[in-house]
Simulated scan of single mutants.
Amino acid sequence: MIRYPHLKEGITIGVTAPSYGVKAEYHDRLKQAGNRLKEQGYRMEFGETIWTQNKAKSAPAHVRAAEFNEMMTGEHVDMVFPPWGGELLIEILEFLDFDHFKEKWILGYSDISLLLLAVTLCTGIATAHGTNLVDLRGEFSDPTTAKWKEVLSTRMGKSVLQHSSEKYQREWSRDEPSACIFHLTESTSWKIVSGSKVNIKGRLLGGCIDVIRHLIGTPYGNVGEFQKNYIHGEPIIWFLENCELNTADLRRTLVHMKLAGWFDHCSGLLFGRSSANQSVDGYSAEDVYAELAEELKLPVLYDIDCGHVPPQMTLINGAQAVVEVSENQGTVLQFFSP
């Protein structure tokens, strides 16, 4: 069965950096985000790893793992919220104390999604793919981003509904501060490979495809065992987002996932908006999606609110979901079912 943490008012949020830390010139951003959450009644506990960054990591793997383990197994922290993603989170997996993790939300995306997926697959504890901590430093959040609190406050046996955003951010404008951090200027349009309407039901799993693909063939990426032991054969809805892959690498990765059995007993795939997806010899992302839909005989959606082109929904690894799209607008209804 899936176990769901529960976000309560006044909890202590632990901030650790299992991937990238924060360089000195950006410490103010991190402090500002922490202060915003304090204003909302949360207590903040900052780990040591968040303040350092060198050679593509916040600290050596065993140091990052030890701090994360302490937050996940101890009583002093109720939720773990990394500042942002990075590159080398995979280094810490072999040092994690999965057997002793308590039911606590872990929230993030990008490189953090590798940790989220591994924790859910190995423990049955639901994890939350959504906003980064540093992106909550604004005076307010857009409605899609702000939904993270309601989603994580959902109790076992209850459900929570999210709608596609009205607008998304075409490109990052970090030198032009906004009251809500993001500059949402482009009209959101969820797309379907074929047809104008779709309804998909299943258990959500996913993350940044650049990094979660590296779980294939490891003890931390056994999707078949997860499906048998934790969700009793229910179909999976994969949500995937591409940070840096060109279309040929995206295609190779999806074929790898298929051959590894990750798409067995799958009911559909959702792809987030991407500023990557560079075409190779005229081979586009839309070509990749169409080929996948034909091969798997499954619905494939794309340009959903997920990933590195904000804003993004808060999607729960392990939750039951009904995903509906009609006239390029979508909803995701998540059930916190065991």
Rank of each mutant, 00 (worst) to 15 (best):
R3L: 00
R3F: 01
P5M: 02
I13N: 00
G14Q: 00
P18M: 01
S19M: 00
Y20M: 00
V22P: 00
Y26Q: 14
Y26F: 15
Y26M: 11
D28R: 09
G34M: 05
G34V: 05
N35L: 10
E39A: 09
Q40A: 13
Q40H: 14
G41D: 14
R43I: 05
T49N: 12
K55M: 12
A56W: 14
K57A: 11
K57D: 03
R64P: 08
R64V: 06
A65N: 10
A65W: 10
E70N: 12
M71D: 02
E75K: 13
M79K: 01
F81N: 00
P83V: 03
I92S: 08
I92K: 09
F95N: 13
L96S: 14
H100W: 11
F101L: 13
E103A: 11
W105H: 02
Y109I: 11
S110V: 07
S113P: 06
L115M: 03
V119G: 10
T120E: 02
T120D: 03
L121G: 05
L121H: 06
C122M: 15
T123E: 04
T123Q: 08
I125C: 03
H129D: 05
N132V: 03
V134L: 10
D135T: 11
G138C: 06
G138V: 07
E139H: 09
P143G: 09
A146C: 10
K147F: 11
K149Q: 14
K149A: 11
T154K: 04
T154H: 07
R155C: 09
K158Y: 13
V160L: 04
L161K: 10
H163F: 13
E166T: 13
K167G: 01
Q169R: 09
E171G: 11
W172I: 14
W172L: 13
E176K: 13
E176R: 12
E176V: 13
P177M: 03
A179P: 10
I181V: 15
H183D: 04
L184C: 01
E186P: 05
W190Y: 07
K191W: 01
I192L: 15
I192P: 06
S196T: 14
K197N: 02
G202C: 00
R203L: 00
G206D: 00
I209F: 05
I209C: 11
V211C: 03
H214G: 07
L215V: 00
T218P: 01
Y220L: 08
G221H: 02
V223Y: 02
G224Y: 02
F226I: 11
F226V: 07
Q227R: 15
K228V: 02
K228A: 11
Y230I: 05
I231D: 02
H232A: 08
G233Y: 09
I236E: 04
I237M: 01
W238Y: 15
E241Y: 15
N242Y: 07
C243P: 08
C243L: 12
N246Y: 06
A248L: 15
D249F: 12
T253I: 07
L254P: 04
W262M: 03
D264E: 09
C266N: 03
G272I: 02
R273S: 08
R273M: 09
S275K: 08
S279G: 07
D281P: 03
A290P: 04
A293I: 06
L296K: 04
Y302K: 04
H308A: 13
M313A: 11
N317Q: 08
G318F: 03
A319I: 09
Q320H: 13
E324Q: 14
V325S: 08
V332Y: 10
V332G: 06
L333T: 14
L333F: 12
P338E: 15
